[in-house]
Nucleic acid binder design. Structure first.
Lengths: 226, 226
DNA sequence: AGCGATGGTAAGTAAGCACTTACTTTCAAC
DNA sequence: GTTGAAAGTAAGTGCTTACTTACCATCGCT
């Protein structure tokens, strides 16, 4: 097997094991065995276990790196279709966590172990999502469509619903005993709650078919405060 | 030092270290040193490291065991004061996580390691909170104060906001760089979003009374899939 | 005084860990 | 057909780990 191939294979095996058992819970021998090679092979490709771990985290993180988290909903943003914006982001995140639960586990492990990835991910991804969403929310607040609540609070509330739901599905309630719901339905429900929760005038959303409504509703309504 | 005292002291030290570094990341030697005794002392009080870990988890978990999570807001429930119910629970949880961040870390570690505590906590605490809140929500739905959304979805959304906020504060953003907000304000903001998000009609919320309104409009079947 | 229970330790032990060394096999390029 | 590097390994090395043993010290109690 060629060098690059083997390296990648070891990386993938390590990724799986690290995400299952954490850094300290995984031995280099296990990794080697799972990859079907000797331990020495692992250390030929990665100088230390730490380096292998970093490579794993890098490999995962770089997938999230270069894409703007709001890009997938860019047209919804342009249309100022709040529902499409939030529901799209939610669905994206839920699907992502669903088909790659390893990442969430790795992230948690590294956060608990205070590995630099946790910090990096925070800086490079989380902050960006927060800022992007804030700028959108601010705009919609100026439009009079969203209440003048601190935007970051809204972002946190929304991301909280989504991440916590994923965490439940991946970590605690894998059988979905407590709540069995499709990602679609979850994204829709959470979005509904959030948007109704922060809308300036509830009537504008209450009748539910705000979906696919192309025009922005109530551009300059009177802004009532809390 | 008397036997019981020492045992408790070791337990507390272990609690701190386990929560910081996890089970595998903490050595019995470290625990002994931090407790100012020899390693043999640790093993006199706890037969194995596993047993010590279990004792730690038990000790933490039993604090949450015998109290009804909704007891603290019982009068608010009786009054059907939704705001007080949810805000009270949120504030309680946030304060709890604030003054005992160890617990959240221990819980996460044990969930990742698939330790039985994770399951126990889920069964004994989480499920109960979910069920209690559901029963309250159902009642308020019958009252016509809350939309007919699956109650567990509402619970998950609400708990999600709170837990995720705590997780942020304890794990990722301890400096509160991204969002600095008091527990009071957070509890109020999240409650506001949730209640407005699931209220049947804005008026019924606005003046705070839970007046019975006529049957709820359920737009469930109205929507067609895209 | 003596004695056993209790609180404590120094110095192990065997297994497991990350990592190394010294060696063999494979195979394409001259 | 030789060679030289790359792919691969068996068998270590030294250190750390959870856990043990064998022994000391200080009591309260007859």
């Amino acid at each position: 097997m060629a060098g690059g191939e083997r390296r990648l294979q070891i990386l993938r095996v390590a990724m799986r094991l690290f995400s299952q058992r954490g850094f300290r819970g995984t031995t280099t021998k296990e990794i080697a065995r799972a990859a079907g090679v000797s331990e020495a092979m692992v250390f030929r490709h990665f100088a230390t276990k730490e380096e292998l771990y970093s490579a794993v985290l890098d490999h995962k993180a770089c997938l999230h790196d270069d894409l703007d988290p709001l890009q997938r909903v860019a047209d919804a943003i342009a249309r100022k279709d709040d529902r499409a914006v939030f529901e799209g982001m939610a669905l994206d995140a839920l699907n992502q966590h669903d088909c790659d639960p390893e990442f969430q586990r790795l992230l948690l492990h590294s956060a608990l172990e205070q590995h630099e990835l946790a910090h990096m991910f925070w800086e490079k991804f989380v902050r960006r999502v927060y800022r992007s969403l804030r700028s959108y929310i601010r705009q919609r607040q100026r439009d009079g469509a969203i209440k003048h609540v601190e935007p970051f609070v809204i972002v946190r509330a929304f991301i909280g619903m989504i991440i916590h739901h994923s965490l439940n599905n991946n970590l605690w309630d894998r059988e979905r005993q407590l709540l069995k719901i499709s990602n679609q339905a979850a994204a829709r429900a959470f979005t509904e709650i959030l948007l109704n929760g922060v809308a300036t005038s509830p009537q504008s959303r209450a009748n539910g078919d705000g979906r696919q409504r192309s025009r922005v509703e109530t551009p300059k309504r009177k802004r009532s405060k809390k």
